[in-house]
Design a protein around this nucleic acid. Structure first.
Lengths: 198, 198, 198, 198
DNA sequence: CATGAATGAGGTTTCATTCAT
DNA sequence: AATGAATGAAACCTCATTCAT
């Protein structure tokens, strides 16, 4: 297919749905889901309350669509090659990707993490999300297996936990986070240099 | 009959207060702060709504008291010897302590982590909490410095992030978490065996 | 009868009922009836809520007793000679009495006036109060009739209204009220000097 | 159908706002501010509780808007010529105005007077109100000064108090109040006929 | 497609009153 | 006579959602 024209892009950008999602995301992330009223979202998106209900069924639907959109985007980056086996370069690339994606949309990731601790929200997304996460962990596990690590499942899990913890810390205060040094640290700690194996 | 003594009243208050805090904690942790109404808490604690307000100023006060109680308890465990320098034994002991405390009160830790992503809730506790956390990280930093690690501040920070990530994963599904293996993994990865230094 | 002994006075003064009435009066007058809770009154009177209900049936009863006590006191001053005809000296004396009584218990008079505009409260006291007031006005009317004033009923009524208005203004800001000058003004305006008649 | 125009919306708001203010005024005046619940007002105005909060921020805001509207209206009548000096005709005219305005909206004036004795309510309006009242009294004072009265400030103050007292009496029972006779009485007592001066 | 007035259920909070001790 | 824990009705207020236009 031919690439989208500038006009098409403009249309997409101007799409009300997109605007609303952004407005809602920002407010959910900064003020919390329950603390953000539909009224405020509509005002922030410069539309009326009524119109919002033309685009989204209800408040919860809005949240789901936001999370959906984010997950989609995240796993796109990691879906390439997901069946094959990671090289060290790919492993390192994924780390960079991980933080690039977070940096790109910090509010989203605030919301994403908060979700994990709000059971009523989590239950909506749980299945879809856990499938995706398991996929990723399996890829990492294969990587470790291939490198001859003793307990690759554990290693993958610990890697995942580490990334969770670091991402959380990053999100809490992105300005003062030594991002580049941390990336190096992760690579040093979790990427298996081949002669290290011996 | 003669009226109750001051001591009797005090006892009643302490017991009831304890009951309410537990009921509220459980519900806040499982359903989220905003999703839990005072009505539901009162019902869960088998008291009237009105009585709850006899014990706590308002919903926020209830949350603060819960978090306070938890923080107090947590940092008690780590306050011993906080000025001195950790030995390896102490380092390992603290890891065991960390998980023992979490295991003891999983709902509390759910609430604790969820707090970090609910800005309007976090702001209530931020100062008190961050001071305590920094204290802990400084102790860890000294440990690494003393062991001759190159960048002890970074190492301490990464250790903290790792513990955060792992604790989070533990809380999400405590039943299926290989706790003992994980502890060993952490010790292996973050405890500096002295001849390793050279 | 012999005058009350110091001991008897002390008993009266210590009477709980008296204390409670005073505490309640003060708070009703300063903060409004609906804005004053039984709890606060009990605290202010240094007793428990429960005990208050030993002395007074309920909150409204407390109010009624307060107003009652005040009216009793007020009209005591004016009841002497109420059947006879006022001399100018008595007329002037009553003006002095009026302000002396107000000065003695400003909170009470704040409450008294506020009552007139709270129908649900007024209705409780209306009959008793209006009878007393009419008595007084009749005495004044007779005074004017005897002095040969043309429309003594109207004159008495206007005198009453004037005293209401001035008392109201006095109560609002007693400190800055030129009490003595005002008394003279009233006497000059409403007391009939006999040779003025001609 | 096409959506309502901005003008239509404005009209709806103004009409409904007016309705609510009237309903609230009536109930505040007849039952007292604290004795009137938002629920009752809404019912009286034939709207839902929620809608009331669409129009007024809260109960206090509703009260303020009512009082504001009344003060605005009252002082409009007296603002003409306020810098110049009153003639006798104007002085008399103002007396007629005073009672005309009260007669027009008795509930409002009940509320107005009741306010003075509800401290927590008064404090809301005090400053604005006292400024307006002082303005008026100054005009009266100038009138007396110009007529050569000895103590014009006192005379103005007494005039004000008298009008307060009479207005209060009028409001309490408008049906049986000899309005016209009273007006004459006031003019006779407080309007300075020029040859009286000598 | 678009508006915001309108609803009503449900949330937080207060407080007069009762009652076991 | 005295306490304050406990209740429950009712207050204020919010907000997701609907709907006439």
């Amino acid at each position: 297919m031919s690439p989208r024209t500038a006009k098409q892009f403009k249309e997409i950008r101007e799409n009300k749905s997109f605007l609303i999602l952004n407005a809602a995301l920002e407010m959910f992330a900064n003020n919390g889901y329950h603390n953000t009223s539909i009224s405020k979202i509509a005002k922030h998106a410069n539309i009326s309350k009524g119109l919002l209900y033309n685009y989204f069924e209800n408040k919860e639907d809005l949240l789901i669509k936001i999370i959906d959109r984010g997950i989609e985007k995240l796993f796109q980056s990691f879906d390439t090659n997901s069946d094959g086996i990671l090289t060290n370069e790919e492993f390192e690339f994924f780390i960079h990707e991980n933080f690039r994606i977070i940096k790109e949309n910090i509010p989203y990731w605030k919301l994403y993490f908060s979700m994990f601790f709000q059971p009523e929200v989590l239950s909506i997304m749980k299945d879809k999300l856990f499938m995706k996460i398991n996929n990723l962990l399996n890829t990492i596990e294969k990587y470790y297996k291939n490198k001859g690590v003793k307990n690759p499942a554990m290693e993958a899990r610990m890697y995942g936990a580490f990334l969770d913890g670091i991402s959380m810390n990053y999100i809490m205060d992105p300005e003062n986070f030594p991002l580049e040094d941390v990336k190096k640290y992760i690579i040093d700690k979790f990427c298996i240099i081949d002669n290290k194996k011996s």
